[in-house]
C-alpha cells in the first residue's frame, strides 16, 4: 500500500536540490522509504539537477587541480567509519521504523524510551544534526516521535511555524483528512486543528516542528505555560 498524502512539490525539490535542512530532510526521506511515487519524483528532480549541471557554463579550474586529484586516487581509500555506528538490527520481520529514521532513533520502535507529556500522549526526542537540535530549550527545530493512544484527541493547537508529521503506525484524523502509515502532512500557522488517533490502536508519528506549538482550546490555554510539544 502506498501513502495518499505526500510532501508538497517544494519540499521534494528542496530535498533533490540539497537545500532542505537535515531535520526536514529526515521526515521527507523517511516518507520516501514508504512511497515509491515520491521516490520516482525525486529521481526525476535529480535528473533535472544533472541536466542543469550539463548545461552549466564552464569556469576555469586551477592548473594543479587534476594532478592533486590523480595523486589522491593513487592512495588507498581511507576506512570510512559510519557516523552512526553499525545499523541497528531490525526486530524480526519488517521494521516499523524505516531507514533513515531507524538509524537516527538508534533502533526500532520497540526500543524507544517514551516520556509522558499529557494523558494519552507520549513523546521521544530524536537527535538530528548534533547535540543542540533536539533540545527543547533552543526554541528551534524539534524532531520527535509522538505516540497518541488509540481514540485520544490531541489538545487543539495552532502552529507558530510549521509542523511536518509523518505517520509511522496507526492513524489519525483531523479536519483535513485521514492519515495512515506513510502519510505526510505539512501544517502551517493558519491551521487550528485537533488530530484524533484512530480507535484501533496507538498512532505513532514523526513530528518536525520549527517552533513550539500553541494550544488553543480552553484546556490548551490552561496547559500552554506547562506543555511544550
Amino acid at each position: 500500500m502506498t501513502p495518499s498524502h505526500h510532501p508538497v512539490r517544494d519540499l521534494l525539490l528542496a530535498y533533490a536540490a540539497g537545500t532542505l535542512p537535515e531535520a526536514a530532510g529526515l521526515a521527507v526521506a523517511t516518507h520516501l522509504a514508504l512511497c515509491p511515487l515520491c521516490r520516482a519524483e525525486v529521481r526525476r528532480l535529480e535528473a533535472l539537477g544533472g541536466t542543469l549541471l550539463e548545461q552549466e557554463t564552464t569556469a576555469p579550474v586551477s592548473d594543479g587541480l587534476l594532478d592533486a586529484i590523480l595523486a589522491q586516487i593513487e592512495e588507498p581509500a581511507p576506512l570510512s567509519l559510519p557516523l552512526l555506528g553499525p545499523k541497528p538490527r531490525a526486530s524480526a520481520g519488517s521494521p516499523a521504523l524505516p531507514e533513515p529514521l531507524r538509524s537516527y532513533v538508534g533502533g526500532d520502535l520497540d526500543g524507544v524510551q517514551w516520556k509522558p507529556v499529557v494523558r494519552g500522549l507520549d513523546e521521544a526526542p530524536v537527535r538530528v544534526g548534533g547535540a543542540a537540535a533536539a533540545d527543547a530549550a533552543t526554541g528551534g527545530t524539534r524532531v520527535r516521535l509522538m505516540r497518541v493512544r488509540s481514540g485520544v484527541a490531541m489538545p487543539r493547537h495552532t502552529h507558530h511555524g510549521t509542523e511536518m508529521t509523518l505517520v509511522l503506525a496507526g492513524g489519525f484524523s483531523d479536519q483535513t483528512g485521514h492519515y495512515l502509515r506513510g502519510d505526510f502532512t505539512l501544517t502551517d500557522t493558519s491551521v487550528d486543528h485537533q488530530p484524533t488517533a484512530d480507535p484501533d490502536g496507538d498512532c505513532i508519528c514523526l513530528a518536525v516542528t520549527d517552533a513550539p506549538l500553541r494550544l488553543t482550546g480552553p484546556l490548551g490555554r490552561l496547559l500552554n505555560p506547562f506543555v511544550r510539544f
Binding site: 502506498t2 520516501l32 522509504a33 515509491p36 529521481r43 524505516p98 531507514e99 544534526g129
Partner: peptide, 26 residues
C-alpha cells in the same frame, strides 16, 4: 550536516509496483 537518505536494501522500504508507468526510469 548529513543528508538523510533511504537505504535501498531496507526491509521496511515499500517497493515499486511492477507495472506502473509512473516509476519508469529516464
Amino acid at each position: 550536516e548529513r543528508r538523510p537518505e533511504i537505504d535501498p536494501d531496507d526491509p521496511a522500504l515499500v517497493p515499486e509496483p511492477e507495472d506502473a508507468a509512473d516509476f519508469a526510469l529516464m
